[in-house]
Deep mutational scan, measured.
Amino acid sequence: SMGQARALMGLSAQLDEELDFREGDVITIIGVPEPGWFEGELEGRRGIFPEGFVELLGPLR
């Protein structure tokens, strides 16, 4: 894990590789696949999402 982030708003996945989450969910960050995107894990599910949907809870490791 690289850190954690809290969802500022919900994301309804449009693509298979995207992660669904609700506002307030705390997501474990597991990677940065490309600039502007995070890869995360939530409730046993993994996927990517735009960084603008979340606030980091501390610096990434």
Rank of each mutant, 00 (worst) to 15 (best):
E51M: 15
I48V: 14
W37R: 10
G10H: 15
D25Q: 06
D16W: 12
R61W: 08
G47C: 02
S1Y: 14
V32F: 07
L19M: 03
R6K: 10
L56H: 06
G31A: 06
G31V: 04
S1F: 13
E55N: 00
W37S: 05
I30K: 12
L11G: 02
L11M: 15
A5Q: 04
A13K: 10
G47S: 06
A7R: 07
E17D: 13
Q14L: 06
G47Y: 00
L11K: 15
I29E: 01
T28W: 02
G31P: 12
R45Y: 01
S12I: 09
R22T: 12
A7T: 09
L56D: 04
L11S: 15
L42C: 07
T28H: 07
F53G: 02
E43M: 15
E18K: 15
I29T: 02
L56R: 08
L11P: 01
L8P: 15
E39D: 06
L42M: 06
Q14A: 09
E41K: 01
L42W: 04
G36V: 04
R61E: 13
E39K: 10
L8I: 15
F53R: 07
I48H: 08
F53V: 10
R46W: 01
I27Y: 00
I30C: 09
R46Y: 03
R22F: 08
F49P: 00
R6A: 04
E17M: 11
M9L: 10
L8D: 02
Q14M: 08
Q4W: 03
R46D: 03
E34V: 07
G44S: 07
E41F: 05
F49A: 06
A7S: 02
F21K: 01
V32A: 13
I29Y: 00
G36D: 02
F49T: 00
G47T: 01
W37N: 05
G44Y: 01
V32W: 00
M2L: 11
A5I: 09
I29L: 08
D25G: 02
G3A: 06
S12Y: 11
A7H: 06
G44N: 02
E43T: 01
S1W: 11
I48A: 02
R61N: 13
L60P: 08
T28I: 02
R22Q: 13
E17S: 13
I29A: 04
D20N: 13
S12Q: 14
M2H: 04
A13T: 15
R6Q: 06
I48K: 15
G3Y: 04
F38T: 00
L56W: 01
G36W: 04
V26A: 12
A5L: 06
E51L: 01
F21D: 00
A13S: 15
E41V: 08
E23I: 10
G31T: 03
L56M: 07
Q4L: 11
I29Q: 13
E34S: 12
F49S: 03
I30T: 13
E55L: 09
Q14H: 14
A5S: 05
A5K: 03
D20Y: 10
G3N: 13
L60D: 13
L42E: 06
V54D: 02
E51D: 09
E17C: 13
I27P: 02
E51F: 05
R45T: 03
F21P: 03
F38D: 06
G47V: 02
Q4Y: 12
W37I: 13
L56K: 09
E17R: 12
F49I: 05
E55H: 06
A5P: 00
L60M: 13
E55Y: 14
L15K: 15
M9I: 10
V32I: 13
E55W: 08
P59N: 05
F49V: 03
P59E: 07
L11F: 15
G10K: 07
R46P: 05
G44D: 05
G58M: 05
R22M: 12
E55Q: 09
G10T: 15
F53Y: 14
A13V: 09
A13G: 10
G31W: 00
F49M: 04
L15R: 15
G58F: 10
R46V: 09
D16L: 02
E18S: 10
G10S: 13
E18R: 11
G58I: 03
G44K: 08
L42N: 03
R61K: 15
D25S: 08
R46I: 09
G47P: 04
E23D: 00
A7P: 12
E43G: 11
E55F: 00
I29H: 03
T28S: 14
W37C: 05
G40A: 02
I48G: 01
E23G: 00
I30D: 03
L19C: 04
G44P: 03
Q4F: 14
R6E: 02
V26I: 13
R6M: 11
R46E: 05
E41C: 06
L42Y: 08
G31K: 12
G31E: 00
P59A: 00
G3E: 00
R6T: 07
R45A: 10
E34G: 08
M9S: 09
A13W: 04
F21G: 02
L15D: 13
M2F: 10
F49K: 05
D16N: 09
T28A: 07
E43N: 14
R6G: 01
E39L: 13
S1R: 09
I48W: 11
E18L: 09
E43C: 12
I30H: 10
R6F: 00
R61F: 08
R45G: 00
R6L: 08
S1A: 15
F21M: 03
E17Q: 12
S12M: 12
M9F: 14
G31Y: 00
S12V: 11
